[in-house]
Design a protein around this nucleic acid. Structure first.
Lengths: 226, 226
DNA sequence: GAGGATTTAGACAAGGTTGTCCAAAATGGC
DNA sequence: GCCATTTTGGACAACCTTGTCTAAATCCTC
């Protein structure tokens, strides 16, 4: 009862330690897996005593869940921010899609956090099914749905020719993964150059499948209306 | 020196135990991760005493490496066998590609072993970098290269319009993964129906990007030659 | 600076794991 | 049935990990 008075005021360094523990735990859980990660390692990595971890998070299981929730939330915020930069009125469709995909890939998929989420998901997905189910629904689910809406809009404006926007969105993502999935799964961190080449190929194929012949004739009509 | 005489003859049940240990270890390593798997569990799952495991494989690390090598080899054999059923002279290109992709996906990618390899790869890739590097080169590397050759042949015969067969091969694979990757990463096992739908969509998009307009005019010429 | 809360280092018990050892039992070829 | 080999179950030491507890050091606000 009384400890709250100060735990809400005294958290200058408190919050910093909390964050540093979560960050360190993320790194160690990711590298070693749940069973392989030990609290002492996390404490050392965080520059914090073991007891502090127990004070803050109570339990290895609770810590893991906290770390997951934290990363998932950060990833989601980031992903939706980038989704807002989707080219709704493209000047040069191919170039704009490449730029968008590049942003998305570099920040959400192949960054440190992206790898972390994917690895944890695969390795420990069955340990916290509800948590990952939540992530799938709120993360990839909504992102793909939002991307599908943007693609549908481009199709409506005559830039694209799409039957099922949801399928197109998933395939857009998949094509972007095509070249990078394997190298990235190993320790290999991808160079900007590699990502750019992969994204260019992905967008080119995507437009071969879903693009309008050339210069998007309907686009002119759409812009005239607006 | 003398123990060889019989260890080479007496392995009727020997080989069976060996296999059952490897199979059980694969399951347990996959479910629990390297650190989380314990030898007693594997022994129980294999219906074998713990000592037998140590007799056969010496060490947890060695056992893990053996399991990996075994699965990788089996997967490779299976994958190349299916690759040999690629439709080189397609009757109905779309239907034939769908059938081929269906075979490949069901047997190599989304089967029990496929999931196993992927999970171990992601979870423990940094524990045995050489081993996984070998796998990448001998497995996906060669498979994609072989698939690229088949696609190039179809392109040469006028069925497809492909600039870079290697890229097309990777994208063919990626499109097939598009819809199934996420559901499968969770415990969810995929129904035949789901896989079929996903593969149909993948092939349709692939042909929208790389197919010839209709009925592949050049194909007629090619078959006349042959 | 004073005072209350937090953090720290270290010790600690409880429990689990690995890998070894050994004697008894089972196995398979001769 | 005999024999060498393998398998078994159990005991075992060494080690590691989790989570708790303590007293001393540190931090933050006033």
């Amino acid at each position: 009862m009384m400890e709250k008075k100060c735990s809400e005021i005294l958290r200058r360094g408190h919050a910093e330690k909390r964050r540093s523990v979560i960050d360190a735990a993320a790194v160690v859980f990711c590298r070693e897996g749940f069973a392989g990660a030990n609290i002492d390692l996390i404490a050392a990595e965080a520059g914090v005593s073991r007891q502090t971890i127990y004070n803050h998070h109570g339990d290895k299981d609770k810590l893991f869940a906290t770390v997951l929730r934290d990363i998932i939330e950060r990833m989601n915020v980031r992903a939706f921010a980038i989704l807002d930069t989707f080219p709704n009125q493209p000047d040069d469709l191919e170039a704009d899609l490449v730029a968008f995909a590049l942003r998305f890939n570099k920040n959400c998929i192949w960054g440190q956090e992206g790898k972390l989420v994917r690895k944890m998901l695969v390795a420990e997905g069955e340990r916290y099914p509800e948590l990952f189910e939540m992530w799938r629904k709120e993360g990839p689910g909504k992102i793909e749905s939002a991307l599908a809406a943007r693609l549908a809009r481009l199709a409506h404006s005559g830039y694209l020719d799409i039957d099922d926007p949801d399928v197109a969105a998933r395939q857009f993502m998949a094509l972007n993964d095509a070249e990078l999935n394997l190298p990235s799964t190993f320790g290999k961190s991808l160079s900007d150059e590699e990502v750019l080449v992969a994204v260019r190929r992905a967008v080119r194929t995507f437009l071969r499948a879903f693009g309008r012949p050339a210069g998007s004739p309907l686009a002119a009509a759409a812009t005239q209306e607006a």
